[in-house]
Design a protein around this nucleic acid. Structure first.
Lengths: 213, 213
DNA sequence: ACCAAAAAATGACTGACAGTCAAAAAATAT
DNA sequence: ATATTTTTTGACTGTCAGTCATTTTTTGGT
């Protein structure tokens, strides 16, 4: 009885096709301007079918967010590949995060949007669940990196890997978001500031505060 | 001919009354759930009148955001009042920011919402302008504090006050937002983490990296 | 092959809401 | 008292998320 399995597979394929379509529309028109009708049309399904696979629009965001997190995670893995010391990996990951926000700005925006949103439906959707899982995986990755830094003596031995990971995450997020903010609203151009330089400077400060001296 | 002046005053009063009503509705129902119709009703104006004073819903957010920034600025001023050394003021301001996010969480949420939003209408509204101005004032305040820290030898002399101010702002913002994120989405409760402790730890790290040793 | 029952897909429809605008009301000037 | 300008109104429009009765497709038994 392989029918159930085949149906499962088909369901997943259709889901992915819908997410593809949603990305298409959302990335080209913006999150707000994208309509479910257009997503349905691009996905070549009726609107009703979309709602068979996703509870609501927000649920689609979750799915996209989840993809973005996976992508980010992969970029982190790649960033540390050829780097020996834990402390140097921290910097590499920070830069990778910043790269991600530029190269995959579409994903980045979708992710920030989700993060800053109250989340009306208190979603217990599998996609929201997936986001949390991916997020935790990224944090675990950071914690392991810091653990390694402590072990290879390049980072302070009194650091708590998990907590320090979260702090790095939060602080980097803040700096990168500040730059993204400057993009929409004025803010940066007004007083003319090179945000790229500022982000690297902030990474330096963070790394400095973690170094084992 | 004091009529023009009186009308100007009345206009401002009405504007403020509408912002009051908007806060009422938005703070009790949430940003998304609040409708212009209800805001109009609470403000005791017709909907059309609201649109006479504000271009659109977003414009009302700007107005609220601006109030929030002013409040935050005042809390910053108060926080450093009885503190001598620049480096200690940095910590005090960080704590004040965190306090603000808890005590005035309504304003905080509105502000984050605005910051994370692409801003569809590329608003050149006076309210958006005001937000930028207030934001710059806060940054100037931070820069002056750091300047003072450099002068009183409690902070590293090689720091650029403005740039360092922006970095402090961004990093603190990131940490505080991370905590707020944990409020809507799970994230924090899942792995049980005391975010308050984490925020203070991150402040310590920041302060440490700025100290003159 | 055929058919009934189950599963999947459809799209016309609803309700809600942001934003508009011609008309009415109020304030001011003559 | 009345003409003119300013302010206010709320019914109306267009748009969109989400629904659901109906139709189409797939499945499993005979």
């Amino acid at each position: 009885m392989g029918i159930a399995e085949r149906k499962e597979r088909e369901k997943e394929q259709k889901q992915n096709a819908i997410i593809d379509a949603a990305e298409n529309v959302i990335f080209s028109k913006g999150l707000e301007a994208a309509t479910m009708d257009e997503i349905a049309e691009v996905a070549e399904f009726s609107k009703g079918t979309i709602y068979l696979y996703f509870r609501n629009k927000e649920d689609l965001y979750f799915a996209i967010h989840s993809r973005g997190l996976q992508l980010l995670h992969k970029m982190f893995e790649k960033a540390i590949k050829n780097i020996e010391k834990g402390i140097d990996q921290v910097l590499a990951v920070g830069k990778a995060y910043y790269d991600f926000s530029k190269v995959h700005s579409d994903y980045y925006k979708a992710m920030v949007y989700y993060d800053c949103h109250p989340g009306k439906a208190e979603s217990d959707s599998p996609f929201a669940e997936q986001c949390n899982l991916e997020g935790e995986n990224v944090l675990k990755f950071l914690a392991m990196m810091i653990q390694k830094g402590i072990e290879d003596k390049t980072m302070r031995p009194d650091l708590d890997p998990v907590k320090t990971g979260i702090i790095l995450w939060g602080q980097s997020m803040g700096m990168i978001q500040l730059r993204a903010m400057g993009d929409h609203h004025d803010f940066a151009d007004h007083m003319n500031i090179d945000f790229e330089e500022l982000i690297y400077k902030s990474f330096d400060l963070m790394v400095e505060s973690l170094k084992n001296k």
